[in-house]
Amino acid sequence: MKERPLEPTEALNCFLAAVERRAFKMAQFAVINSDDALDIVQDAMLVFVRSYAKRPETEWGVLFHRTLQSRIIDWQRRTTVRNRFRTWFGRADDDEDSEDPIQTVADTKSPNAEELLMRGDIAASLEKALQVLPSRQRQAFLLRAWEGMDVAQTASVMGCSQGSVKTHYSRAVHALQKLLEGLLP
């Protein structure tokens, strides 16, 4: 029996449901703060629906990620400007929102925690390693290795040449291999 093709709106809903979690994680790797990452994903979804919903479904992946990356870059620029103003007005040391260092210490005394701790260590280390990567390398790596995009699609999302994508990706892989040497052999 032949399957009924999805309604355009239904297809759009399925597409967004499939990408929303990974989009959130990508934004979180870039901006660290979860609330900011959620704002970025919300913006990206609305802009995508307004601008590209009528485009063929085969193009949605590239277009959504281009929108998402553009929102992330916008956020980073705004934050840079805001931080510059804060430095000028002498509020650079204002760390009310910073994390309590006690909260970041691992609880090694919990019973039966070894396996969970190991698992948590890998995830946390990977997250940390992705956060310290330069943003272009992180973009290239996540789009190629996680989203499974080819070089041409990644170049289209990042707005650069295919050669640059290859360079960024290769550097990212080597940097991550070095950073995660003990955890992910």
Binding site: E20, R22, K25, L38, M45, L46, V49
Partner: peptide
């Protein structure tokens, strides 16, 4: 990591998607 997102984050993502669908 993407599968292990907390309930609150998932709910917010869902509400954003619904808003985007309303817009569509």
């Amino acid at each position: 990591a993407a599968d292990d997102l907390d309930t609150l984050t998932l709910a917010r993502l869902r509400s954003f998607r619904m808003r985007a669908m309303d817009e569509a």
